[in-house]
Design a protein around this nucleic acid. Structure first.
Lengths: 227, 227
DNA sequence: CGACTGCTTGAAGAAATTCAATTTACGTGG
DNA sequence: CCACGTAAATTGAATTTCTTCAAGCAGTCG
């Protein structure tokens, strides 16, 4: 269940029980709750994978860097999302809090132990990984074959689905993050958003950084989000 | 074990036993062997996922299409690779044989049933899915942040690792497939390959379609494949 | 208050695409 | 067996898209 508060415009979960991992034959006990300040690193690429995480509130970006500093964000993790699940010993991503973020942590080892005996949990782990894979594959299509405006439209629709309960999308991330997610520059993202605004498809709400957006014409926006 | 024959220059596996799925606590019995002609469809997007596949010989491309025909290849499956593993009921990809291809098939249902009782197999399924996810994430980085020449260099290195036993890379796929894998056009792929040739990094062997390539300078090629 | 950050916009430039033409091999059919 | 048509790859020229560079504006924070 998603709850919207006036104070922070981000969705928030109230307990880890309402999640993909809970509800197996035996309940999962999260280690506890940790809070990360904006831009704080949660774990780095090639660090040993000790924990699995679920977002309680906030937003997380996971990215890779090329040696010369170019950055590609693979995914944003929003309330309810589980991340950090890996097979080998090490992560292959860096993750950071986009805004102040609260996470639930779970020892990976105990999850693995549990999964050995619990085939429902096991199935669930496959399911989570598969969902991540599907997202990545959709993202591959976007990055490889969509033009800038289509990328931004797809992004807005994804965010609209994932973090709005009202008609205002409050983006937790800035233009830089969006650009690195879509394989564009900040300028191109900004120009595309302006273009959508001029076309009457969306409008910016009062917010200073133009991170509050209302979709005015979903039909037109969807027509840009080819399937 | 990879065997190279003079007749076909593609690697080939001799039995499914030498694979990721076999070797669990109980052996996996593949349904049998099927052969697909070049360009034959193996399964289509949104088809119910009845089987899981392993490549015995040949090559498979899996791709998505946008409604206007733009195509993005997510992966090439080469001898030994397992694909078609999905969680839900339906595939989210179309797969086709790149060249004449022999596959081993396994009923998905029986694999699932087996996995319920066999935690080692279960673990293995997670492992395969995770590997696919890692590949997709690497591909996201390539598509989002690498320039044409770097994309082609990365592609060659990947193929070199995956399908050469000698010093000649025999590409099963044509330029169109490479382009759709790298998010480029055929012309750009061709120009990049020519450029690598002029730089003395690779050379084309006798083959008519310039699909036989020898890497002359691995050091230089690797320097284009940023990490 | 002033420096700073994040966002936007414009102009110039670069990279990749599109359009067009050529080459080469290959298969079909006279 | 050769001629013709087709398909794959390459190369060049023109064009488009996106990036880079530059400037400005608004809100925030010390």
């Amino acid at each position: 269940m998603l709850v919207r508060t006036a104070a922070d415009q981000m969705p928030r979960l109230n307990s880890p029980s309402e999640t993909a991992l809970a509800g197996g034959s035996s309940p999962i006990y999260w280690m506890g709750e940790f809070t990360y300040k904006r831009d704080a690193e949660i774990y780095g690429e090639k660090e040993p994978a000790e924990y699995v995480y679920q977002v309680k509130a906030g937003a997380v970006r996971s990215y890779k860097l090329l040696s010369d500093g170019r950055r590609q964000i693979g995914a944003f993790h929003l309330p309810g999302d589980i991340f950090g699940l890996t097979d080998g010993e090490a992560h292959w991503f860096t993750t950071e809090a986009v805004i102040d973020t609260t996470l639930w942590l779970l020892k990976r080892r105990s999850l693995e132990t549990e999964a050995r005996a619990d085939s429902i949990l096991s199935r669930r782990l496959i399911s989570i990984t598969t969902r991540n894979l599907q997202h990545a594959e959709d993202h591959v299509l976007l990055l490889g074959r969509k033009v800038a405006l289509e990328k931004v439209a797809t992004f807005l629709i994804e965010m609209d689905k994932r973090l709005t309960s009202a008609d205002v999308i409050t983006l937790p991330m800035g233009r830089r993050d969006i650009a690195d997610y879509l394989g564009l520059t900040v300028e191109t993202v900004s120009r595309s958003l302006s273009q959508l605004g001029r076309a009457g498809i969306l409008t910016f709400i009062g917010d200073t950084h133009h991170r509050e957006i209302t979709i005015l014409d979903r039909t037109q926006l969807l027509s840009l989000d080819l399937q």
